[in-house]
Simulated scan of single mutants.
Amino acid sequence: MSYTDLSEQPTLLQPGQLLARGVARHLASHGFACVEELVPTRGLRVDVMALGPKGEIWVVECKSSRADYTSDSKWQGYLEWADRFFWAVDSDFPTELLPDDTGLIIADAYGGEIIRMGPESRLAPARRKVMVQKFAFHAARRLHLLRDPDMHPQRD
């Protein structure tokens, strides 16, 4: 994914990326900072990780279709990396497919709304420290790549 100004060409983004953009906009209105496609540990990549004003960490998985949801076998692995877990889907998604004990955000490319708050499961302090550091590192690296697109960063 290119980290250029996404507002210029939203049609170039995939449906899940458009959902992620709307989720990030909505969570920003609640004081959260978001990083898309963050890797909490090898083999997992969350669609949106949000860091809240009180240090809370939320993970949001964006699903653009029934097939996208049913093909995701890794989502339960994300639970141990966040204080709250949410699904983000558009208004046409069959929400009855989603587990009742998870959060729900209805979104589009321009915003969203939290329909159901995900249950809280507070991270252990050591895990929280690791995740905040990963969040900061990835956010700083992406900002640097925006300013210097020719930079060739080392792999994480």
Rank of each mutant, 00 (worst) to 15 (best):
M1G: 13
M1L: 09
S2P: 10
Y3W: 11
Y3G: 10
L6R: 14
L6T: 09
Q9H: 13
Q9P: 00
P10T: 10
T11N: 13
T11M: 14
L12V: 03
L12I: 06
Q14V: 07
Q14P: 04
P15S: 05
P15Y: 08
P15I: 07
Q17S: 12
R21H: 12
G22Q: 06
G22R: 11
A24V: 00
R25Q: 15
H26D: 09
L27S: 04
A28W: 06
A28M: 07
S29D: 06
A33E: 11
V35T: 14
E36M: 11
L38N: 00
V39M: 11
T41D: 11
R42L: 13
R42E: 12
R45G: 02
R45N: 06
A50Q: 01
A50R: 05
A50P: 09
P53G: 03
G55Q: 04
G55E: 06
E56L: 09
I57V: 14
I57M: 04
W58L: 11
W58F: 13
C62I: 14
S65A: 12
R66N: 08
R66E: 14
Y69G: 09
T70G: 04
T70A: 09
D72C: 11
D72R: 09
W81I: 12
A82G: 15
A82W: 05
D83K: 00
D83L: 07
F85M: 09
W87F: 08
A88D: 02
A88L: 10
V89M: 03
D90C: 08
S91H: 12
S91Y: 02
D92I: 06
F93W: 10
L98R: 12
P99Q: 08
P99W: 01
D100G: 07
D101Q: 03
D101G: 06
T102R: 04
G103N: 11
I105A: 15
D108G: 07
G111C: 01
G111D: 05
G111R: 05
G112Q: 02
E113V: 14
G118K: 00
E120A: 15
E120H: 06
E120R: 12
S121V: 13
L123D: 03
R127E: 15
R127G: 02
M131L: 15
M131D: 05
K134W: 04
K134N: 02
F135A: 02
F135C: 13
A136M: 03
A136V: 13
H138L: 09
A140E: 10
A140Y: 04
A140M: 01
L145I: 11
Q154E: 02
R155F: 05
D156Q: 15
D156G: 10
D156V: 06
